[in-house]
Design a protein around this nucleic acid. Structure first.
Lengths: 195, 195
DNA sequence: AGAAAATAAGCAAGTGCTTATTTTCTGGCG
DNA sequence: CGCCAGAAAATAAGCACTTGCTTATTTTCT
């Protein structure tokens, strides 16, 4: 509960993120998480009531962080610049936090339905925000596509899949990659700025 | 071993695909797979030596099928048409076989390293083929991007992520979706046919 | 009757989690 | 500074349950 306690909890979350990302939630044991910190398995339980609560803490944090990146982007920017910045930051987050992203996307089915509801709502807001950006670009003529929904999904697929393959030998700089992805995003929606 | 045996094995693979897709490999039990067919858990073992071999059979089949779709596309087509067809068929496979795709992408870490090697090779060939398509389009001036590697990854991300969210209420037709994705693919590489 | 298939029963190992106990830390006082 | 009471944290041990898989037996089919 104190500041010390929350730092201990953060260390456990970090270790669990690594272990869950490597083996999957069900494939990872509480003993393996504790081993990562040199603790016994029982040491986790003063901080998290169960393994599933630990997963939820990781997952909700990751989704909230990624959404916060999108929400940082100023909505009064011109459509093309707004989309570019959204995709750049969203891709950047997934490259910088690829272990977190893997856990957050991979183990949704392992959560209680109450916890899953919280995650689904965060994902809904993420998709909605990306769709709004595409829609306003279509409305003001900056983008040249018909269906904002499918293009928003495509943009999110593109970025969130980064954490599956990143880093690779050829692409190990999060910043360079996210600039490339911002270019790709503008082409996906038929943006005209780069022509 | 006989025809009857391989049909029984196919039924087990199909049931396991559903159960593995729902709960993940480690979250699924051999008893749950057998229950899906109304069999006892022991009935799986004449057909597959272990749960992991069952996973491998599913995973290698899925990856080989998806790669076969790409290899069906005639390499002498014009670059834009070739890419469009590759993405259309690859996206179509992932929409039509989303359960298979989930298992094939989700549980790689649960396999033995010998089995994983086989999968990695199939994925390497898939990525290589997509990169070749992009590269030849750049070479003959049909596409207007600099880095074929990152664009091939983007195209594969786009298609393979379909099996994570498909179907949704708004997008439930594999054919319509894959046509849309073929359009998106051409824009990603700066193709000029659609302008 | 004889072959093929599936089963019931169960084993050894591993799971999440609990609890009684020990260790470690903290801060005031001689 | 040393020391020790009280609190906080971590542990060892283990419980109840589930796991993948095996084997001796029964059932099913021709």
């Amino acid at each position: 509960m104190s500041k010390k306690d929350s730092r201990a909890a953060a260390k456990i979350r970090h270790a669990a993120t690594k272990v869950f990302a490597e083996r999957g939630y069900h494939g990872a044991t509480t003993r393996a998480v504790a081993d990562e910190l040199g603790l016994s398995a029982a040491a986790l339980y003063p901080h998290f009531r169960s393994k599933e609560e630990l997963l939820f803490a990781i997952t909700v944090g990751a989704h909230a962080d990624a959404l916060a990146e999108l929400e940082r982007v100023d909505p009064v920017l011109a459509s093309a610049e707004r989309l570019r910045e959204c995709v750049r930051l969203f891709a950047l987050w997934h490259a910088n936090n690829y272990l977190l992203g893997r856990v957050a996307q991979h183990d949704l089915a392992a959560m209680t339905s109450e916890h899953l509801d919280v995650i689904v709502e965060l994902r809904r807001r993420t998709t909605q925000l990306m769709r709004d950006v595409v829609t306003s670009g279509i409305d003001d003529g900056a983008f040249a596509v018909g269906d904002p929904g499918v293009h928003a999904i495509a943009l999110i697929s593109l970025c969130s899949d980064i954490c599956r393959w990143f880093p690779s030998q050829a692409y190990s700089s999060p910043e360079a990659l996210s600039e490339l992805y911002a270019d790709i995003a503008l082409r996906i929606v038929g943006g005209s700025l780069q022509f």
